[in-house]
Computed example of a mutant assay.
Amino acid sequence: MKLNHQDFEDVRVVCVDENRIDAACAIQFKDEMRGLSEAGPSRIILDLGNVEFLDSSGLGAVVAALKAVRHGQRLELAALHPTVQRVFHLTRMDTVFTIHDSVSTAVEGVANAS
């Protein structure tokens, strides 16, 4: 599982550089996300633009990443592929997560709010 990150003022963008989050990599994803959120800023945006497939284990891993953020941190999602967005919609997880159309609109939202 390959995750890259870039920090801006008070936001960390974590990009998933894989096209799947499934049972084969869910545990590694959770571990890497935990490490990136522990020392991260108050807002973390998970860029899922490369992810074309997300199974129940992958969804569970993303939810686990949400539960692992420390008090005062937020985990938001961005750039969901239509099939991944459908998983979030069908499971109603789109009501749990803040989901942005793109990473740039998510980051710009921070800049405009400041």
Score class of each variant (00 low, 15 high):
Lys2His: 10
Leu3Asn: 03
Leu3Val: 14
Gln6Asp: 13
Gln6Ser: 09
Asp7Lys: 09
Phe8Glu: 14
Phe8Thr: 02
Glu9Thr: 01
Glu9Asn: 13
Val11Asn: 11
Arg12Met: 13
Cys15Ile: 15
Cys15Ala: 13
Asp17Pro: 00
Asp17Glu: 15
Asp17Lys: 07
Asn19Val: 10
Asn19Ser: 14
Asn19Arg: 11
Arg20Ile: 02
Arg20Cys: 03
Ile21Lys: 07
Ile21Phe: 10
Ile21Gln: 08
Asp22Gly: 05
Asp22Trp: 00
Ala23Pro: 01
Ala24Cys: 06
Cys25Pro: 01
Ile27Phe: 09
Ile27Thr: 13
Phe29Val: 00
Glu32Gly: 07
Met33Gln: 01
Met33Val: 09
Met33Tyr: 00
Arg34Phe: 05
Gly35Trp: 02
Gly35Glu: 11
Leu36Ile: 08
Glu38Trp: 04
Glu38Arg: 11
Glu38Pro: 05
Glu38Lys: 10
Glu38Gly: 09
Ala39Lys: 13
Gly40Asn: 01
Pro41Thr: 14
Ser42Asp: 12
Ile45Met: 04
Leu46Ile: 10
Leu48Asp: 03
Leu48Trp: 07
Leu48Tyr: 06
Gly49Arg: 01
Gly49Val: 04
Asn50Pro: 05
Asn50Ile: 02
Asn50Cys: 07
Glu52Trp: 03
Glu52His: 07
Phe53Pro: 01
Phe53Ile: 06
Leu54Glu: 07
Leu54Ala: 08
Leu54Lys: 08
Asp55Gly: 04
Ser57Tyr: 12
Ser57Thr: 09
Gly58Leu: 04
Leu59Tyr: 10
Gly60Trp: 02
Val62Lys: 14
Val62Tyr: 12
Ala68Lys: 12
Val69Trp: 12
Arg70Thr: 12
Arg70Glu: 15
His71Phe: 06
Gly72Met: 07
Gly72Pro: 07
Glu76Lys: 04
Leu77Lys: 07
Ala78Tyr: 02
Ala78Gln: 02
Ala78Asn: 09
Ala79His: 05
Ala79Phe: 02
Ala79Ser: 15
Ala79Cys: 06
Leu80Pro: 11
Leu80Asn: 11
His81Phe: 00
Pro82Val: 00
Pro82Ile: 01
Arg86Ala: 05
Val87Asn: 10
Phe88Gly: 07
His89Ser: 13
Leu90Cys: 10
Arg92Ala: 12
Met93Pro: 06
Met93Ser: 12
Asp94Val: 04
Thr95Glu: 14
Val96Leu: 15
Val96Lys: 09
Phe97Leu: 05
His100Ser: 12
Asp101Leu: 03
Val103Tyr: 06
Val103Thr: 04
Ser104Val: 14
Ser104Gly: 05
Thr105Gly: 03
Val107Ser: 00
Val110Pro: 07
Val110Thr: 14
Asn112His: 14
Ser114Asp: 14
